[in-house]
Design a protein around this nucleic acid. Structure first.
Lengths: 219, 219
DNA sequence: TGTGTAAGTAACTATACGGTGCATTAGGCG
DNA sequence: CGCCTAATGCACCGTATAGTTACTTACACA
């Protein structure tokens, strides 16, 4: 007879039914499955199985496969923006701040390979899921403004060139990092080198920082 | 009674049965369907219908859905490399040659949006289809060498910097063009601007040429 | 002109898929 | 304690899917 069975502590009690935990398990499983197999390739049964949840719950919480995908994708966007926000760009010398940003983007893609394939899936269906998400627009604009003020500061301190568009710079920084990862499989075959080998990674990030610095900095 | 029914001219005779033409129709339809919906999202019935061919023929010529995808993808790679080869990089001043290459890549993606989504699909399945294609390796290496010799020439003529890796440069040129297109849907939502509007396109290609020139050229 | 081969067709199959109806049960709250 | 809501489980559905079987037909060539 377990003595404390009927009096679990409020913080550690084992809840047999826990909506939030179930939702999270489903979201994690969905992120895995969607990123591995794409939106069409993903199987809701596989998600339910991996989440140790019943398929019924998936439809209960997220309405449909697309609803689930939308939620997963939005969370991922929010996550990368949240991480970016943590960067202390404002208190670093402009050139260091720029390099920090490039390096962050690179390392985020390494640590979160799912993000890239999820975004690819969303673009395959022409952004159908995020089309009406004002949240994403807001946080992204905030970020562009942040880069713009970094550029402005660099110009004031006479280390950055004038006339660089913050949005274009943003896109370019993402490009040179994103492309390398999303195409690492075909790239490794075509160029006959392992794109994910440590030396290859190091060579690439160095090249990318050089690319951005030469684009933005004076001299 | 048609007089010449039994004696069609060898060049213009209307063949009711034409294996090559049927194959081509299937390949064109497959390219459309695969690029629009991805590998998993593509429907073989839709391909057969669009090709005005029987589904059986598709399996007859290409063995399987994956066999068909492999053929489509290889043709697309061969096509872009063939077009690249036509560029007269060797007889242009280095800087002009470089700009020509960037502009070509850009315009190729505009004219052949299918290429990008096909490559994305191939990377989603970790390059399973092209893994054992020696043809692709050969033609790609040839291209890297071509860029290398352009870089060498630029250095000799004292307009390019030294120490730039041709493969990295190749990847970067592809990156800044490819990323913009593959993510044009999410990009248009997030940045609240139409990525495919003529002015946006013009602004982007200008920025890209600037990026590459600053990376490669002296001053 | 006859014939073997390859091009082409239609109908079919087994299954895997996204999604649902309905019964059951845990547990928070009064 | 007992009730009511929300969490969960099970079994099921209609359909769409990749792939196939068995057949017919055009035509190149002898």
């Amino acid at each position: 007879m377990p003595l404390e069975k009927s009096r679990p502590s409020s913080s550690t009690k084992k809840r047999v039914r826990d909506a939030e935990a179930t939702k999270l398990r489903i979201l994690e499983a969905a992120k895995k499955e969607f990123s591995r197999n794409g939106l069409e390739g993903a199987r809701v049964d596989a998600i339910a199985l991996d989440a140790k949840a019943n398929k019924r719950m998936l439809y209960h919480y997220f309405k449909s496969k697309d609803g689930l995908f939308r939620t997963v994708l939005e969370r991922e966007y929010l996550n990368i923006r949240a991480e970016e926000t943590k960067l202390d760009l404002e208190n670093l010398p402009p050139r260091t701040a720029l390099e920090t940003l490039v390096r962050f983007t690179w390392e985020y893609y390494i640590a979160n390979p799912e993000f890239i394939t999820l975004v690819n899936s969303e673009n395959l269906c022409q952004a159908a899921h995020i089309k009406n998400s004002p949240t994403l627009k807001t946080i992204s604009q905030k970020f562009v403004r942040r880069i713009q003020s970094l550029l402005d500061r660099g110009i004031r301190e006479n280390v950055f060139r004038e006339g660089i568009d913050a949005a274009q710079l943003n896109i370019t920084i993402a490009s040179i990092n994103y492309y390398y990862f999303t195409n690492r499989f075909t790239g490794s075959v075509i160029f006959e080198r392992d794109f994910t080998a440590p030396e290859a990674l190091k060579e690439r990030i160095t090249f990318n920082i050089e690319t951005i610095c030469r684009l933005v900095c004076k001299n």
